[in-house]
Design a binder for these strands. Structure first.
Lengths: 336, 336
DNA sequence: CCAGCGTACTGTACCGGTCAAGAGCCACAC
DNA sequence: GTGTGGCTCTTGACCGGTACAGTACGCTGG
């Protein structure tokens, strides 16, 4: 069974290949009768519609947007926040008739998704700004929007106001009277850095330093979950234990609460804990977490709107999404 | 600045276009000297490497595998199990030099990812077997592997032995002495069905029915989380309350524990609860969940191995991955 | 009666690569 | 001296579509 192409259908019906193409792609260019006849013939031959690869070459667009992610994708999926981001991105894309292609940053030179996979545009998500993959995208002149990322140069961006959110969280502790505050942050590659982690750290200090609060900083890698627990233990199991802990994420905050309980401490009576992101974990935690809310679905939608604009030649203004403090039950004044 | 193509580089260096192509794609076909010269020229012109779309057409493969998913992608990302599956799939794919393209099942006729996006193969994940998208894939002769799905006809498949796992879970309750058992399952589209949900139900009954246990079944949609909580309340807040509940997922089990506590019941003393999947929730829950373990990363790897084999013309045998019961602290004999 | 126009279809030139076969050249063996 | 083979590079066809500029024709209006 030879492959069915526009030509074989054209031969069958006795029209030109172009007319068959129009039957599929531009119905207004031919009479309804003929179109019906062509579609019937196509059906009969088992034609699966115009070949996407050929169409992509001819039209100059593929119908799919890439998402460049650092490192193992497992992290991106397992983290509630980035998973929610991916979800909102792909939902927003499919509303616009676009598919989402994941482009893991390459370790290997032989296969570089950012170079070797056809996409119409790309979102760069939590990624080392110096990654060669980004350079490839630029080189191929692929429209790009960076997300949760510092902007280097002339690139469209969508960011969350992490710094303000962190400042609100720290100020909340200061207002409650805390003066010895632990910080449980993300351990990041010093070269690559992690933009949200840096911004949040700045925000926390924005509020803590003017108040003269003492800080104890502990960093832990993203995974595995036990690492955060151990780090929290290290932060709490010491003579000059802080009276409150600011965490990089809600997951870290939950781990901190567990560690506190293991040490016989009650949250928030003995220890206040603040999370970040207001993910599903936050409200369900016990006690429910005081945390910094960010609009993850809005971030996804904004990213898609931005990439769509860049793809159509526009130059969208940088987006900075607001954050807000959500006070629940994991914070209280320090023990007397 | 005109677009840089193989031809422009060829002109620049004074060789044929084919030689430039070989410089990128088959280094052994030309002398190292000339190759270096060509690459230098390409670099100078700002060439981004062979155009993936053109290459895809010429070579007949795109370097990317599709994943067909039902409904809103949000669910797929928010559920811990399917997120872990996606993660292992994309990791396994990138090891083989393949990217992952998400193909949401279409609602709209005008854009059907399964028909309009170029992929070399596709995994069909928890999807209505009757979905038109599957028919499109078949029509386009895209190699397909179905995952967590009943096999209709001659398609490669990767499944988990849900039924056996469910049987083990139910038998565990029977062995503990439970004779009035609630079942909190997934509410599914009656037409589409959900293969794991059906299999698990069969497995539970495999053990409960011979023991003469009485069952009370309640179904709840996947989202939102509160729905499961409410459903669990409905199951527990009745005179003939079951002494144990078998849940479709760990998330449902956690919701059930919450509901039990809200009613003043202690788990497992007053009520035994069994989850499914052994996701991250299970061990972290309080009390830690007795649940059915499935190897999600293995499922991802098996799916990728299978699709790779199908893409290279093979016909892999169906895979059925084992499940096992993990007994933790959420189950005990029924109250006296 | 013919310009002018809209409708329906066709012809040709791409899109930017890869494949398979061939041709020039030198080395080496017989 | 020449056949054989390997290394390089070139030639021409092809992948399966789409864009754009026609062409043919019937209808309308002055």
């Amino acid at each position: 069974m030879a492959k069915v192409t526009l030509q074989s259908i054209a031969d069958r019906v006795g029209v030109s290949r172009m007319t068959v193409s129009n039957a599929f792609s531009r119905p207004d260019q031919l009479s309804a009768d003929l179109r019906a006849k062509i579609l019937a013939a196509a059906d009969e031959l088992g034609y699966g519609g115009p070949d996407p690869a050929a169409r992509a070459l001819a039209r100059g667009r593929t119908g799919s947007v890439g998402l460049l992610i650092n490192g193992s994708l497992s992290e991106a999926f397992e983290d509630a926040v980035s998973a929610a981001f991916l979800a909102s991105v792909s939902d927003a894309l499919s509303e616009r008739g676009l598919a989402l292609t994941l482009l893991p940053a390459s370790s290997d030179q032989s296969f570089v998704p950012a170079r070797d996979v056809a996409v119409d545009g790309a979102l760069v998500y939590i990624c080392d700004p110096a990654a060669p993959d980004i350079a490839w995208l630029e080189r191929r002149q692929v429209p790009v929007v960076v997300v949760d990322h510092n902007v280097d140069g002339d690139v469209a961006s969508v960011n969350v106001d992490d710094r303000s959110g962190a400042r609100l969280a720290a100020q909340h502790l200061v207002d409650l009277g805390h003066r010895r505050v632990g910080i449980l942050t993300l351990e990041t590659d010093p070269a690559a850095g992690n933009y949200p982690a840096r911004e949040r750290m700045l925000g926390w200090h924005d509020a803590l330093d003017p108040a003269g609060a003492e800080t104890v900083v502990v960093a832990t890698p993203f995974a595995p979950p036990e690492a955060a627990y151990d780090a929290a233990l290290g932060l709490l199991d010491r003579p000059d234990r802080p009276t409150a802990v600011l965490c990089f994420s809600d997951a870290f905050a939950v781990a901190t609460i567990r560690a506190a309980e293991a040490l016989g401490l009650t949250v928030p009576a003995d220890l206040s804990v603040v999370g970040f992101d207001d993910s599903v974990l936050a409200a369900g935690s016990r006690p429910p977490l005081t945390t910094v809310h960010q609009e993850v679905p809005a971030k996804g939608r904004a990213a898609v709107a931005a990439i769509a604009e860049v793809m159509s030649g526009g130059r969208p203004a940088p987006v900075l999404l607001p954050t807000s403090l959500v006070v629940r039950e994991s914070t209280a004044p320090p023990p007397a």
